[in-house]
Simulated assay, not measured.
Amino acid sequence: MPGGMDIVRLTAVSKAYGTGPGAVTALDGVTLGLAEGSFTAVMGASGSGKSTLLQCAAGLERPTAGAVSLDGRDLSRMRESALTRLRRETIGFVFQSYNLLPALTAEQNVGLPLRLAGHRPDPRAVRAALDAVGLGDRARHRPAELSGGQQQRVAIARALAAAPRVLFADEPTGALDSAASRTVLRILRTLVSEHGQTIVMVTHDPVAAAHAGRVVFLADGRVAGTLTEPDAVTVAGRLAGLEDAAAGEAAAC
């Protein structure tokens, strides 16, 4: 269960791309706390600011205004080298694309980020990460010998190997069939409920969002509501309402 303390905090965060009349506002004054040990899904229509929120929260993008804190540290006050180190030591990333190197085995792919950071991977930690996603018996298999769902589970294990405080996932089931998606989502839920992992997941899928403990809805770069302990039907209804409202505003312009 969430410990109550926000491990990630966005305060009045805005993010604009470009300048002058052609500037595009992706986030507009977002204030949001993400508790340690929580599983939060972020949803919204295309262009609502979902991925930008994730990128700002993870320190991949610097906000135009406002502040982001991660594990008690103000990211806006950090130099790029220190920010890179903090991301490496504190954050794990999982994307829709698996980004596995085809010539490496599963265990070599899991250990690769540690090697790139100048550390020798602990074989026990690598195997534990693979065990956590149910692939301990596939450690020596290369990506071509694994299904899409198994490859995404290797990508999750790779993110877990460095014991991140926060795991950010951007559409982690977007390229998977329904059965593989269910497996990946069960793993993510178990990481939270049994291991206290903090997960922030951007998704367009109400079924995926229903695995989270809370859903945050975005519209036009602003928080448009939240749901706790969501179910897929309620999530889908709320999302449809936001999309209808956005379509109505566009038609009125």
Rank of each mutant, 00 (worst) to 15 (best):
L32H: 12
G33M: 07
G33H: 02
L34S: 11
A35S: 15
E36Q: 14
G37E: 04
S38K: 08
F39S: 05
F39R: 01
F39P: 09
F39N: 05
A41V: 11
V42R: 08
G44I: 02
A45M: 10
S46W: 08
S46M: 08
S46P: 10
S46F: 10
S46G: 07
G47E: 02
G47K: 02
G47L: 07
G49H: 07
G49I: 03
G49N: 01
S51H: 04
S51T: 10
T52G: 03
T52F: 04
L53K: 03
L53M: 05
L54Q: 00
Q55T: 05
Q55A: 11
C56G: 04
A57Y: 05
A57W: 04
G59W: 01
G59K: 02
L60M: 13
L60C: 06
E61A: 14
E61S: 14
E61N: 15
R62Y: 12
R62F: 12
R62N: 08
P63Y: 10
P63G: 12
T64L: 00
T64Y: 04
A65G: 11
A65L: 10
G66D: 01
G66Q: 06
V68L: 02
V68H: 04
V68N: 04
V68K: 03
V68A: 02
V68E: 04
S69H: 14
D71L: 05
D71A: 14
D71Y: 12
G72A: 01
G72W: 01
G72S: 06
G72Q: 08
D74R: 10
L75R: 07
L75S: 07
L75I: 10
S76R: 14
R77F: 13
R77C: 14
E80A: 12
E80G: 07
S81C: 11
A82P: 01
A82N: 10
L83M: 11
T84G: 08
R85P: 00
R85Y: 00
L86A: 12
L86N: 03
R87S: 06
R88F: 04
E89W: 07
T90Y: 10
T90P: 12
T90W: 00
F93R: 11
F93P: 14
V94G: 06
F95C: 02
Q96K: 05
S97G: 14
S97I: 13
Y98A: 11
N99R: 12
N99P: 14
N99Y: 13
L100F: 08
L100H: 04
L100I: 03
